[in-house]
Design a protein around this nucleic acid. Structure first.
Length: 590
RNA sequence: GGCGCCGUAGCUCAAUUGGUUAGAGCACUGGACUGUCGAUCCAGAGGUUGCGGGUUCGAUUCCCGUCGGCGUCGCCA
């Protein structure tokens, strides 16, 4: 070992000891006669002093060549800092290391990304990704990755304690017809065929249930070749779980326990279980989104029955066309949003595809004011006031659109406004379940049904008949874990009955031959004594993001991809040799 | 693929309606200094204003295209 302690270890208890530290020069202060260095490693910062009499003239001369990010090994005496010189901002600020010997282990070029930069001095993200090894030295990033390590350790321990078996599944698999775009890997042995990287180990874990491994868990790397977002990477980690002889409540109960444990250990908060649940339909009614942020209210209010009574043309025509008029009441919103501010909100919703933004301002005397008020009779305005629960100072924002459109617009407004008006404490954590998702989405373009979750999801038992009569109303035994308005995990009870499975495939327009080609192995397996089973997958990267209070998933991953799915450090993806292409029988057509 | 924001010194930023030699802080180089802690003081060096084209007497500034980063919609069973 080149060191006896780390840069976070030493305190007044070590005064008088001779110790050796290794680390990077975080900063240096040259005083002519002597020199101070803040030495950094993963564990902290320690001040090293190169001063007579402890340090020889020769070593002081050498110390003057030190620059930031040089790597050194220092031996010295731990000493209390002189009277009044303690640094309360440092955890090791009571002591310092007085150098008696040191060795330059390595030099560094002037770093383009300074590990000690914070706030607005932080270099651009492209530069930090290019020099990721420097960015990863930043204490803030190290804290996040180490939190990630602890969360994963907590997950592994929890499932091990509950008798789950960790079983690995292949990365090279076969492309499935539905879902996200696959990442493909060409086969050298079978020209013209391709493996697909897994979007999730879904089918394998069901096979494991059929094979009798009744409690399975895996930290699985998943791949989806779709466009990126602040909370979405093409390559991500799922905590994948599957259980046999259980129903959805059992799976939810297991995850409730995990949430409570990790929230206690890493956030120091007591989360009461069972976590609250809400159906998908209720979530869309009240919040306009399937992952509602419950840290604040501002629920959606439907006014579709009142609105057409006005002379406001937009409201009338939208309702006549079968659309909805819904609103949110922004309490005390007129203070935050002046006329100019409302213009800003209008531009915001127009950017989301809305034609405009109708609004009321609640005046001091309680009356509803604003450009559209003149289209409303006194009586009707009273009805609106009652429906919306208005008080002076409130701002009412409307969306007039098809139901889905009002959901999209009002959810976006609700989220944006809550953030701008700081309607919740930044440290609040809210965990809940959204359950009973629709089985199917209707695709207007292709005039066909698609699976909302995946085609192996079981409908509610009482909705089995709806598969034949009214698929749009059919709800699934599906559940999503929602943390602060983010989907943090999702799962379903699986179909274990080949009869029901056939019905679902038929609805989805997957004929027998196609089904058999794509996942015949699962359909076969289901006929050999498949136990009832259910499972869930948690988005590990998102959990880290939420537990670390970050708003960007790249900061939770050591080597993330950019929005164009590239790696700025390695420059992946890259071209390959003609020889490699020839072996794979691939010709480029560009 | 659509929409929006951004790109100026190694880094973070500035530069008036389009106007002389593109500035500042940090970092870097040289010097001074015995207790600093974002040390301080003096001096210096450092620029293809992402790239290409256009408008103009003149472009960092306006226009078009392109590359890259970010956000968002589509997309993400």
């Amino acid at each position: 070992m080149l060191r006896t302690h780390t840069c976070g270890d030493l305190s007044e208890a070590n005064i008088g000891e001779s110790v050796t530290l290794c680390g990077w020069v975080d900063s240096y202060r040259d005083h002519g006669g002597g020199l101070f260095v803040d030495l950094r490693d993963r564990y902290g910062l320690t001040q090293v002093v190169f001063n007579p009499p402890d340090t020889s003239e020769e070593l002081i001369e050498l110390s003057k060549t030190l620059r930031t990010e040089y790597v050194i090994q220092v031996t010295g005496n731990v000493a209390a800092r002189p009277e009044g010189m303690a640094n309360k901002k440092m955890s090791t600020g009571a002591i310092e290391l007085r150098c008696t010997d040191f060795k330059l282990l390595n030099k560094s070029k002037t770093p383009p990304v300074s590990p000690s930069a914070t706030g607005k001095d932080l270099p651009g993200e492209d530069l930090r990704l290019k020099h990721r090894y420097l960015d990863l030295r930043r204490p803030e990033v190290q804290r996040t990755l180490l939190l990630r390590d602890r969360l994963i350790k907590g997950m592994r321990d929890y499932f091990a304690d509950h008798n789950f078996a960790d079983i690995e599944t292949p990365v090279l698999g076969r492309s499935t017809p539905e879902g996200a775009r696959d990442y493909l890997v060409p086969s050298r042995v079978h020209h013209g065929t391709f493996y697909a990287l897994p979007q999730s180990p879904q089918l394998y874990k069901q096979i494991l249930m059929i094979a009798g491994y009744d409690r399975y868990v895996q930290l699985a790397r998943c791949f989806r070749d779709e466009d990126l977002r602040a909370d979405r990477q093409p390559e991500f980690t799922q905590l994948d779980v599957e259980m046999s002889f259980v129903d959805g409540d059992d799976v939810i109960g297991v995850i409730d326990g995990l949430v409570a444990k990790l929230a206690k250990e890493h956030l120091g908060i007591d989360v009461p279980t069972p976590l609250p649940r809400m159906t998908y339909d209720e979530a869309m009614e009240r919040f306009g989104h399937d992952a509602p942020d419950l840290r604040f209210g501002m629920e959606l209010i439907d006014c579709s029955d009142l609105a057409p009574k006005s002379d406001f043309g937009v409201f009338k025509s939208v309702v006549e066309a079968g659309g909805h008029i819904r609103a949110i009441n922004v309490k005390n919103g007129t203070k935050q949003y002046s006329r100019r501010g409302i213009d800003g909100l209008t531009e915001f919703v127009q950017g989301l595809g809305a034609k405009g933004l109708a609004w009321f301002r609640v005046e001091e005397d309680g009356k509803l004011g604003g450009a559209i008020a003149k289209f409303f009779s006194e009586e009707l305005l009273e009805e609106f006031k009652e429906r919306l629960g208005t008080e002076p100072g409130d701002l009412i924002l409307f969306s007039a659109d098809k139901f889905a459109g009002t959901c999209r617009i009002l959810h976006a407004l609700r989220t944006k406004i809550a953030k701008e008006m700081q309607l919740y404490e930044p440290d609040t954590m809210n965990f809940s379940w959204v359950v009973e998702f629709p089985m199917f989405d209707y695709d207007e373009d292709t005039k066909s049904w698609t699976a909302m979750h995946h085609p192996f999801t079981a409908p509610l038992e009482e909705h089995l008949e709806l598969l034949k009569t009214d698929p749009g109303k059919c709800r699934a035994q599906a559940y999503d874990l929602v943390i602060n308005g983010s989907e943090a995990g999702g799962g379903t009870v699986r179909i274990h009955d080949s009869e029901v499975q056939s019905q679902v495939f038929e609805l989805l327009g997957i004929d027998e031959q196609t089904a058999s080609e794509r996942f015949g192995f699962l359909l076969d397996a289901l006929q050999y004594g498949a136990p009832p089973h259910a499972g869930i997958a948690l988005g590990v990267d998102r959990w880290v993001m939420l537990f670390a209070k970050l708003d960007n998933i790249r900061d939770c991953i050591a080597f993330p991809k950019t929005q164009k799915a590239g790696d700025l450090m390695t420059d992946a993806p890259g071209t390959v040799d003609a020889k490699q292409l020839k072996e794979l029988a691939i010709k480029l057509d560009m």
